[in-house]
Simulated scan of single mutants.
Amino acid sequence: MGVPIRRAGAGDRDTAVELLHRAFASDAVSRWVFPDPDQLERDHGTLMGAFFDMAIAEGGYVDLAEDGSAVAVWQSVPAGEHGDDDDPAGFRASIDPDNERIEQIARLTGEAHPKDRAHEYLVVIGVDPDLHGKGLGTELIAGVLARCDRDGLHAYLEASSLRSRALYERLGFVFLGRTVDLPDGPHMWPMWREPRS
């Protein structure tokens, strides 16, 4: 599609968070974290904002399509570290202290997250729901994956649906073999990408 992509700054927070909220409002994982529709509408944006804020504060970055149609939140993770699961209780407290599912998902994804090699972690990527299937997600992350290939960096993510898993497989990600199983909820697929020469 050729949509220009730029690095987002703090001034883009509202645009990015609103887009992520819309992109994931019907996602099975988001609906598991916030099972009540009113709670989803009230608190889901706070979770998306926490991902944005963490990336900006902790040396990560957010890539945004210039027209606001897609956004990707990344963290550069050194070997031995893995981000938001370091303090699942604190993560929960910062978003919704009464929602134990926020702590559960942070803990479970943290346990699955590889720690032995430095990598670029795709925390979350969202595309305007009206524009799904047009290649925006692929275009948005292609630049980061090209840099990973050039610099010999690995990449990691958790796919939240079979549809997204298939997309990531086309981009060179491989399922690590064990799903993250949310209690009485959906599965997530931890996926790893080796740099291509």
Rank of each mutant, 00 (worst) to 15 (best):
192 W>Y: 11
103 E>H: 03
166 A>M: 04
87 D>H: 08
78 P>I: 13
163 R>A: 13
41 E>D: 15
21 H>G: 00
175 F>I: 00
75 Q>M: 14
186 P>S: 01
109 T>I: 08
181 D>C: 00
100 E>R: 11
50 A>Y: 12
93 A>W: 00
197 S>N: 12
89 A>I: 03
5 I>Y: 08
172 G>F: 07
180 V>N: 07
7 R>V: 12
186 P>F: 03
52 F>W: 07
87 D>M: 06
37 P>E: 11
144 V>A: 09
97 P>I: 12
66 E>R: 13
61 Y>V: 12
88 P>E: 07
113 H>V: 03
176 L>M: 15
183 P>L: 08
58 E>V: 02
71 V>F: 04
23 A>E: 03
71 V>G: 02
81 E>K: 11
130 D>N: 11
153 L>D: 06
63 D>E: 13
79 A>P: 08
113 H>G: 06
43 D>V: 01
83 G>T: 08
101 R>K: 13
28 A>S: 14
90 G>M: 05
21 H>C: 05
17 V>D: 01
96 D>G: 03
95 I>H: 02
194 E>Y: 01
61 Y>L: 15
51 F>P: 00
106 A>E: 10
32 W>E: 10
18 E>F: 06
105 I>R: 03
52 F>H: 04
80 G>C: 12
147 R>F: 12
86 D>M: 10
35 P>G: 09
85 D>K: 02
15 T>V: 11
52 F>T: 09
109 T>R: 14
70 A>G: 02
151 D>I: 07
162 L>N: 04
24 F>D: 02
140 L>V: 09
144 V>R: 10
165 R>D: 02
102 I>T: 05
129 P>I: 12
84 D>N: 10
197 S>E: 13
129 P>L: 11
169 E>V: 08
10 A>C: 01
49 G>C: 08
31 R>W: 12
136 L>Y: 15
44 H>K: 11
72 A>M: 04
43 D>F: 14
16 A>G: 01
165 R>S: 06
136 L>P: 04
103 E>D: 10
76 S>Y: 12
82 H>K: 10
28 A>D: 15
180 V>M: 09
12 D>Y: 01
91 F>G: 07
73 V>H: 03
172 G>I: 09
6 R>H: 11
40 L>E: 06
54 M>V: 14
122 L>I: 08
99 N>A: 04
79 A>W: 08
13 R>F: 03
100 E>K: 05
121 Y>W: 14
92 R>A: 06
145 L>S: 02
85 D>S: 15
186 P>G: 00
96 D>K: 10
123 V>Q: 04
102 I>D: 04
135 G>N: 12
181 D>W: 03
41 E>M: 13
139 E>K: 09
85 D>T: 12
101 R>C: 04
14 D>T: 08
153 L>V: 08
88 P>L: 06
180 V>D: 06
148 C>L: 10
73 V>W: 01
140 L>T: 07
183 P>Y: 09
164 S>A: 11
82 H>Y: 14
164 S>G: 04
138 T>V: 14
44 H>A: 14
160 S>D: 10
135 G>T: 10
132 H>L: 15
194 E>T: 09
